[in-house]
Design a binder for these strands. Structure first.
Length: 389
DNA sequence: CGCACCGGGTTCTGCCATCTGC
DNA sequence: GCAGATGGCAGAACCCGGTGCG
């Protein structure tokens, strides 16, 4: 520790000089109070005693981060090693992000949540940003994603891999719009290694072939565009879900293939236990309501998203519909009504009761309509109730 | 026209474990 | 043995409107 202070002082000096030229230079320092205990803490007294001291934290860095409004305690908890580095680029990063339109608060939050961001060079940042700009039209869009998920942008230092990923995804037949949705929704996909993404795609293609499909490339593309989270899941998870679906529904290859290419794709990324649990509770609930296994199978095939709904939500939704005078048979025929929230359904049932709507006569499609259409319908029925007779 | 059918849009990070390269 | 890079995990629905057909 004794030899270090000189270097540290130099660094501190250099940092505080650059600080004055930085965007934060003019901002008063409201953080002096939080600054102080941090310095005391990072004095690293214990390590002076021990034989092989771990690197102490870089105090001038801590000070700098504090000035920037970074939550140092959070940063320390996430990536302690970064705080011990002698050379970092927090100023450069901050200026870079500010140039892209990020606020001071956003920048501080980004560094707090993903400290390693400050180890990236300007050249690296410029390059990576440009690659993202191939997909996003504006800097603002990127800023919002980076703010939402700093890790997705900063976790990998391999811009070459990012470039290859984009090329690969394009080669799968994903168009600009698909890529935009993918990067917006599951930005982590682009930080995956190319090999990992390839592994999932090839896994999907193999599944297709295994099930007797004749266009594996198209199949993989379809599954990905239907479920943008696929590429950030493990093949193990997706495989287990597929196996479980096949087993519990006793599906033939062709049936399974059809299911996976349609809405079945949307539930493949659920955690294995969750999907299993939902399946079991669905079966149990439906059986209790007098359905046969064949009914349940048909229900799931026609509306796989039902497995997305947790046991409690599903149960209350069904009860609410049944209490409202709708039969289980009607629900089996029009499961899409389960798409809507319990609250929405409850409200609509109340309104429909008010105007004397007869579900036996008119069916339940009315529940599966947009708010606008529903309101218009209610208004019409209120005006001329005889139409119900 | 009005309605049923159907597809599409939005949404999803922050943490831990493990390896790897120095 | 460190820090960086990367893989993997849990958590859990809701809503809108185009269109074609009667």
């Amino acid at each position: 520790m004794a030899a270090v202070p000189g270097v540290m002082a130099l660094l501190t000096l250099q940092r505080s000089v650059t600080l004055q030229h930085s965007f934060f230079g003019l901002i008063p320092i409201p953080l002096a109070s939080t600054c102080f205990p941090t310095r005391l803490f990072s004095a690293a007294k214990e390590s002076t005693e021990s034989k092989s001291p771990v690197n102490p934290e870089n105090e001038s860095l801590l000070e700098n981060l504090n000035l920037m409004g970074v939550d140092v305690r959070m940063a320390r908890q996430r990536q302690p090693g970064v705080l011990r580095k002698a050379f970092t680029n927090e100023q450069g990063l901050a200026q870079f992000l500010q140039g892209k339109g990020a606020s001071r608060k956003v920048i501080a939050s980004i560094i707090s949540r993903y400290p390693r961001a400050i180890t990236r060079s300007i050249e690296h940042l410029e390059q990576r940003w440009q690659l993202w700009r191939n997909i996003f039209k504006t800097d603002a869009e990127i800023v919002s994603i980076v703010d939402r998920s700093p890790e997705s942008f900063f976790r990998s230092s391999d811009n070459d891999n990012l470039e290859k990923n984009i090329a690969y995804l394009v080669s799968l037949g994903l168009n600009t719009k698909d890529l935009h949705r993918l990067l917006t929704t599951a930005p982590r996909t682009f930080s995956n290694s190319l090999a990992l993404n390839k592994q999932m795609v090839e896994f999907l293609e193999d599944i297709c072939i295994e099930l007797g499909g004749c266009n594996p490339e198209q199949f993989a593309k379809t599954v990905i565009t239907r479920n943008l989270y696929i590429l950030i899941r493990s093949t193990k998870r997706v495989k287990t879900n597929i196996d479980n679906l096949r087993a519990s529904l006793k599906l033939k290859d062709s049936e399974l293939l059809a299911l996976l290419q349609s809405h079945g794709a949307e539930i493949l990324d659920l955690s294995n236990e969750y999907l299993k649990k939902n399946f079991n509770s669905l079966e149990e609930k439906m059986t209790a309501l007098g359905c046969r296994k064949a009914d349940v199978k048909k229900l799931i095939i026609s509306y796989p998203m039902i497995l997305y709904i947790g046991p409690d939500t599903l149960s209350s939704k069904l009860d609410c519909l049944l209490k409202g005078g709708i039969t289980i048979k009607q629900i089996l025929e029009k499961p899409k009504v389960l798409d809507y929230s319990t609250q929405n359904i409850t409200g609509r049932l109340k309104e429909l009761r008010r105007v004397g709507y007869d579900f036996q006569k008119n069916g339940i499609n009315i529940l599966d309509s947009s708010r606008k259409r529903f309101d218009a319908k209610i208004e019409k029925l209120s005006a001329s109730p005889d139409e119900l007779m």
